[in-house]
């Protein structure tokens, strides 16, 4: 706590002023660059197909149309259910993933663990070599029976080795002395992990947790592989949206190839509306995590 008040009291120097000006300018410009495309997406999602095809994307839509959203919300129960599935999968997956990842990261970061390099290698190796889609799919369906189960949406991206190693590097930054004192108090490894390492690594956990959550939120591939057409009750949001979007494109392609009768032409605004619908809730998660990103407060707090 001490550090926070100290900084607050300090008189504002010239370097600080220059720095603040630079920060504000740079960050404003960058944010504008990031915001502009999103505004185009937003406005595009409210235009109609013809005006996008003829005029391109515009900040203020030429014509106002809710068609894209109407298509997406055609069956509101389905969309809501898809939100439900995604939220469930994201929460469960993030919790388990973060728990398993941080435990492993704690062990690998601990300098008293003799086999840390070997075990790190054991994990890291999988991020370089993989068996490919087909063997993986066969194993998951034939032996693990992932077909039409929610586990199929959680398990494949539960452990991301990259995040594990990043978290390990954060944890390695925690001074060993803090662990030692806990150990002297008679705490076991699990207790130290839970009571000392976790609180000290809040920013790292928040970051990795956010990344894991984003992966779950955006994942549609596993749903595509493992869920049957009949099990739309298990469809996660991104898959549900993706289905609506690519269906019409694929039909058009097949129609061109083989002269099959063509149904309604896909709509450009759909792509954009989909982005909006899918981004909505998860973007709200971020500000929540922001309280963990306060400089120098964590370690200082424990020590103080």
């Amino acid at each position: 706590m001490a550090s926070k008040t100290q900084i607050g009291k300090k008189p504002i120097g010239r370097d600080r002023v220059i720095f603040d000006v630079i920060s504000v300018v740079v960050l404003t410009v960058l944010s504008a660059c990031c915001l502009l495309p999103f505004l185009l997406v937003l406005s595009g999602s409210f235009s109609d197909q013809t005006s996008i095809l003829t005029h391109g994307y515009q900040l203020i839509p030429e014509t106002f149309s809710l068609d894209a959203y109407k298509t997406l919300f055609k069956i509101p129960e389905d969309l809501l259910r898809a939100y439900g599935v995604t939220i469930f999968v994201t929460v469960t997956g993030t919790f388990l993933g973060l728990f398993f990842t941080s435990m492993a990261a704690y062990v690998l970061a601990s300098s008293t663990f003799r086999y840390r390099y070997q075990v790190s290698f054991f994990f890291y190796f999988t991020s370089i070599f993989g068996g490919g889609l087909v063997p993986w799919y066969i194993f998951n369906t034939k032996y693990l029976h992932f077909h039409n189960s929610l586990i199929a949406l959680i398990m494949p991206i539960l452990i991301n080795v990259t995040y594990l190693l990043i978290l390990k590097s954060y944890m390695a930054g925690i001074p060993e002395a803090l662990y030692e004192s806990a150990r002297l108090d008679g705490a076991g490894d699990f207790t130290i992990y839970l009571r000392v390492a976790m609180p000290l690594c809040k920013a790292g956990l928040a970051t990795v947790g956010l990344f894991i959550a984003l992966n779950y939120w955006n994942d549609w591939y596993d749903a595509m592989l493992f869920l049957d057409e009949g099990r739309s009750d298990l469809y996660p949001l991104q898959y549900y949206l993706n289905n609506i979007l690519t269906k019409s494109q694929a039909i058009a392609a097949a129609a061109a190839r083989s002269g099959l009768p063509m149904s309604e032409v896909p709509s450009e605004p759909m792509k954009l509306a989909m982005t909006v619908v899918a981004t909505g809730p998860i973007i709200l998660l971020y500000p929540f995590l922001q309280k963990y990103f306060v400089k120098g407060v964590t370690i200082g707090a424990v020590k103080g």
Binding site: S3, I7, I166, S169, Y170, G173, I174, P175, C201, K202, A203, G204, A206, T207, L210, Y292, F293, V294, K295, G296, V297, T298, I299, G300, K303
Partner: peptide, 15 residues
């Protein structure tokens, strides 16, 4: 975010 988390990890006493 990744680097921000790393900066948060730096011991405040140093500053």
């Amino acid at each position: 975010v990744m680097y921000l988390a790393s900066i948060m990890n730096i011991d405040g006493q140093l500053y």
